[in-house]
């Protein structure tokens, strides 16, 4: 016998909340991605706990998919952070707004035509 189901849910809620606080209050793109990771992790905890409570293996399958989606999300997210850092030499989210080199969404896709 393990602990009651609600304790697993509470653990997931607390960890999710920590990730949300990190995402909302940090002014650093990498720490924002860290917060997203913590939130995904909390979702996986809740899925596995629910799978045990209802004696279904689906919860574990979903936890595995969450890990895979997190891997894809982190790879693209960190590539974007590196891209922003190369252009602005900062990873503060505000730098995108304040910088003179604000990339127009249309201009960013065809940078070669803009250069004289």
């Amino acid at each position: 016998m393990i602990v009651p189901y609600t304790h697993v849910m509470l653990l997931g809620a607390i960890v999710f909340l920590m990730g949300m606080i990190c995402t909302l209050t940090r002014r650093n793109l990498i720490m924002i991605i860290v917060g997203l990771e913590i939130m995904l992790n909390a979702a996986a905890i809740v899925f596995v706990g629910a799978g045990l409570q209802f004696q279904q293996i689906e919860g574990q399958v979903m936890a595995l998919f969450i890990v895979a989606v997190a891997a894809a999300e982190v790879s693209v997210g960190l590539a974007m952070v590196v891209c922003i850092y190369r252009q602005r030499h900062s990873i503060d989210p505000q730098c995108i707004e304040n910088s003179p080199r604000v990339p127009d969404p249309k201009a960013a896709s065809e940078p070669l035509t803009l250069n004289p």
Binding site: I2, V8, A44, I45, V48, G49, G51, L52, G59, Q60, A63, L64, V67
Partner: peptide, 10 residues
């Protein structure tokens, strides 16, 4: 925790 909750592969 996953191991404890019966999900060793995860």
């Amino acid at each position: 925790l996953f191991y404890l909750l019966g999900a060793p592969l995860v």
